[in-house]
Design a protein around this nucleic acid. Structure first.
Length: 151
DNA sequence: GCCAACGTTGGC
DNA sequence: GCCAACGTTGGC
């Protein structure tokens, strides 16, 4: 089983929105590195940390679980949709998505500034490639973040 | 709102 | 295949 971090801007889709939906498809990924993780590496039952980005105090807020592996992002075929991409065709889809199910809120929010202070987390992609919206998390990083959220 | 970092596009 | 121009992300 693998661990992941998914970013979302809360003004677009917050963890509370996710909780009320219970389950969601993660559409709109239009970056090849993130696409490759979705298409090739994210597996059913993998665990996901839900991150709120592009706000004054970015933070991790909740947990989720992968419930459906990669399938084509059909929004990329919908001319009326903001995620439309004329280069993605049903017979040769360019973009993919997975479904995730909300698990629970962290007992305590873990802020980016706390993660930055923790030497053991200094190699997280979150700190080193701030633009990647889907990223793998190492088990020791995951465990420490969970521990931080419980203290 | 600014802007650095980075990815993508397209002319050559 | 290079690289300048442009667009986007996301911390601050």
């Amino acid at each position: 089983m693998n661990y992941w971090l998914f970013k979302s801007e809360p003004s677009d889709y917050s963890f509370n929105d996710f909780i009320s939906d219970k389950e969601t498809c993660w559409e709109g990924i239009r970056n090849y590195q993130a696409r490759n993780f979705i298409r090739d590496d994210i597996k059913k039952n993998d665990k996901v940390l839900f991150y709120h980005s592009n706000i004054s105090e970015p933070h991790l807020i909740g947990l989720a679980k992968v419930v459906r592996e990669a399938y084509p992002d059909h929004y990329s075929w919908d001319k009326t949709h903001k995620y439309y991409d004329p280069k993605s065709l049903p017979e040769n889809p360019r973009w993919f998505m997975v479904d995730i199910k909300a698990a629970k809120k962290l007992k305590r929010i873990v802020y980016l500034k706390e993660i930055k202070k923790e030497p053991k987390l200094s190699e997280m992609i979150l700190l080193n490639n701030s633009r990647l919206s889907i990223q793998p998390v190492k088990k020791h990083e995951w465990d420490l973040i969970i521990k931080m959220s419980n203290s």
